[in-house]
Design a binder for these strands. Structure first.
Length: 198
DNA sequence: TAGGTGATCTTG
DNA sequence: AAGATCACCTAT
C-alpha cells in the first residue's frame, strides 16, 4: 500500500520521521523499479530549527520547495558530489522535511548495482544519504515530484516499535545551541544498513 | 583522514 | 564577482 498524501501533511515531523523507518522507498525511472527499506532518517523542523535549510525563514530557489504542502520530494546537491533525498512534510508554509539517510536495498538490484558501479551487493550499498540517491537514481531534477505519483512513492509497512528506534543528534551540525544536540536522527536498532555513527 | 566537487549564499 | 560554506563518500 502506497502511503497517502495525508501521511505527509501531518504536522508532527518527528513522528513522521520515526514512522518512516521500516517502510519501503520506491523509484520508477525509465521502467526500472528500484527500492529499499528505510533504516535511518533525520527530521528538519521549520524556520526555528538552526539545522534546517529554511532556518530563519530562508526562502530561495533551492529551499522554496520546503514550504510546499507535505508529500513532495526535495533533492539537493551536497558538496558538489552527492544528491540528498528529502520528503517534505507539514502544511503549506511550514518548511519541514525528513532526510532519508540509509536504506536496505530490496528490488531492482541489477539496476542499483549498475548505478553504484558495483558488481556485488553488500550492507553498505545504501548506507548513507548520498548513497540512497545513488541507488535509487535521484537527482535535483526530481525536486517537486509528488509522492502520490508513479515515479517515487513510499509503501506502508508495520511500525517499528519505539524501543527499537535509536535516537541521536543529527550529523553535520556545526553551529552551537539547542538544535546541535537535539535527538532528531532515528535509526532502526541493530540494523547493519545504517550510515556510520558519529 | 583528507580531498574532491559544484551549487548556493554572503560579502564587499 | 569572488570566496566561504556545505545534512558526504571514497580510497589512501
Amino acid at each position: 500500500m502506497k502511503l497517502e498524501k495525508e501521511f505527509y501533511t501531518r504536522t508532527d515531523t518527528i513522528k513522521i520521521a520515526k514512522e518512516l523507518l521500516g517502510k519501503k522507498l520506491v523509484s520508477n525511472f525509465g521502467g526500472n523499479i528500484t527500492s529499499g527499506i528505510i533504516c535511518e532518517t533525520e527530521a528538519y523542523c521549520g524556520t526555528k530549527d538552526r539545522g534546517c535549510h529554511a532556518y530563519n525563514g530562508r526562502f530561495t530557489d533551492r529551499t522554496k520547495i520546503m514550504y510546499a504542502v507535505g508529500g513532495v520530494v526535495y533533492v539537493y546537491l551536497c558538496y558538489g558530489v552527492h544528491y540528498l533525498f528529502n520528503v517534505i512534510t507539514h502544511i503549506e508554509g511550514e518548511p519541514h522535511a525528513v532526510l532519508i539517510r540509509a536504506i536496505a536495498v530490496q528490488d531492482g538490484l541489477q539496476t542499483i548495482l549498475k548505478r553504484r558501479n558495483k558488481t556485488s551487493p553488500d550492507a553498505g550499498l545504501g548506507a548513507g544519504p548520498g548513497l540512497v540517491s545513488a541507488c535509487l537514481g535521484f537527482t535535483t531534477k526530481h525536486t517537486g515530484l509528488s509522492l502520490s505519483g508513479n515515479k517515487v512513492w513510499i509503501e506502508d509497512a508495520e511500525r517499528i516499535p519505539e524501543k527499537n528506534i535509536i535516537k541521536s543528534a543529527r550529523v553535520g551540525m556545526t553551529f552551537e545551541g539547542k538544535y546541535k544536540r537535539i535527538p532528531w536522527r532515528f535509526r532502526i536498532k541493530g540494523s547493519q544498513f545504517t550510515s556510520p555513527a558519529k
